[in-house]
Amino acid sequence: MEPTLFQSFFLIFTGAAIVASLALYTRQPLLVAYILLGMLLGPFGFAFITNVEVISEISRVGIIFLLFLLGLDMQPKALFAVLKQATHIGLISSAIFAGAGYAVGWLFGFSHLENLIIGMAMMFSSTIIGIKLLPTTVLHHKHTGDLMVGLLLLQDFLAIICLMVLLSGDLGRVDLPTLGKTFAALPLVALAAWAFVKWILLRLIQTFDRFHEYIFLVAIGWCMGLAELCEYLGLSAEIGAFIAGITLATSPISQYIAISLKPLRDFFLIIFFFAIGARFDLSLLPEVAFAALVMAAIVLALKPVTYRLLLRHHSEQNRLSWDIGFRLGQISEFSLLIAFVALNAGLIGARASTLIEATAIITFLVSSYIVIFNYPNPIAVSDKLRRD
């Protein structure tokens, strides 16, 4: 019998509290605990929760809030400066990672189209893990945070392009008119959002700023409203949420909104990592286990080295280059979404999809361990490295 939504939440959060306690006692990262809990309770484990699609849809709200808060922390002028600095590094590194993914897929006998999509999935690093493990002080005040955010945002734009290409035709053919309209809509949406914030939203906030509940409600409504508009226009809800955040970034109330929404973001991100574990089909694992280990090893080794070389060429310090390389040394939640879209469109088989998912989980786990035990982060097991 399928549990109700309340019962599902009980299993997720009570289970997460238990495994989180065990993880902290044994000095393990919490992200690992949430993913393993999903594997145990999901349809391919003990099957306590079988309707993973509903859980996954709910968890997407966490990503939307994460992008909204990321926008709130970025000043528009700083954003353009960072994107200008990071563009060529992001494009070159993405091409290298895509080629490596294609080569590994070819080595293990996948089809040409599957290899292209595997390569596509290898291009990106996790926005959630990258930002979640980055101390707030670094994000706000250090060059490391600026450069990482620029690279992740550029990758998010590339990921959205890839998703639009996959969704533009039954066999992956690119619908250029639709694609062109979508990209033309981006600056128009950003301009309209800026005007709405300047002439309407900020005036409402200034008039009723003594009502904290109202500020909280307006912030969520603005985030969700622009996210839904961008989803309707084909830009993705995540891009809409980021635009919503960055248009409010210059407001004096932006940091109050950010602090108010962080607990809500964390609530949904726990569900997100649970859903990653719950969606993983353990029955197909033996077929792709060796390929996934090879792919994960290549990702974990290639990404830090590539970023180190590109950033050093860009005159960045050696320590900073390795720091960013290891923080971005995994594939992305967008990779999981690409695998899901491609599988539903019949562009790849279940084996290729499972390969991408297994590689994502392995790289999520290992890269999290590397950062947590070696670099400053908010959930480090060492007091010396813990930075909130």
Rank of each mutant, 00 (worst) to 15 (best):
Q7E: 14
Q7G: 03
S8R: 09
L11C: 13
F13C: 13
A17P: 09
A20E: 04
A20L: 00
A23H: 00
L24D: 04
T26C: 05
T26Y: 12
R27P: 01
I35W: 04
L36T: 15
G38T: 10
L41T: 12
G42D: 01
A47I: 13
N51P: 04
V52L: 07
E53P: 03
S56K: 12
S56P: 02
I58D: 00
V61N: 06
V61H: 04
F65R: 12
L67Q: 10
F68D: 03
L69N: 13
L72H: 02
K77R: 09
A78P: 00
A78E: 14
L83T: 00
A86Q: 11
T87V: 15
I89N: 09
I92C: 00
S93C: 06
S93T: 11
S94H: 08
A98T: 02
A103C: 05
G105V: 04
L107A: 13
G109F: 03
F110A: 00
H112K: 14
I117Q: 01
G119H: 04
F124N: 03
S125V: 08
S126Q: 04
T127Q: 14
T136L: 05
V138G: 12
H140D: 12
K142N: 15
D146K: 14
M148V: 09
L151S: 01
L158A: 15
A159D: 02
A159Y: 02
I160S: 04
C162Q: 13
V165Q: 07
S168E: 11
R173N: 13
R173D: 09
V174C: 14
V174F: 03
L176H: 15
L179V: 13
L179G: 13
A184T: 13
A185G: 06
L186R: 08
L191Q: 02
L191K: 03
F196M: 14
I200S: 08
L204F: 15
L204K: 12
Q206T: 07
Q206W: 07
F211W: 08
V218Q: 00
G221T: 05
W222I: 10
W222V: 11
M224G: 15
A227I: 09
A227L: 06
E231A: 10
E231K: 03
G234F: 10
G245I: 07
I246M: 09
T250A: 14
T250I: 09
T250M: 13
S251M: 06
Y256I: 11
Y256G: 11
A258T: 03
I259Y: 12
I259P: 01
P263H: 04
F268T: 01
I276G: 14
L284N: 13
F290E: 01
A292C: 01
V294I: 06
L300I: 08
P304K: 03
T306F: 01
R308Q: 06
L309C: 12
L309N: 12
R312K: 15
H314L: 14
H314M: 06
G325S: 13
F326P: 07
G329M: 07
Q330K: 12
I331W: 14
E333H: 11
L337Y: 11
A339G: 11
A342T: 08
N344V: 00
A345P: 03
G349L: 02
S353H: 10
I356A: 11
E357N: 04
I361L: 15
F364R: 10
I370E: 03
N374L: 01
N377E: 02
N377V: 00
S382V: 12
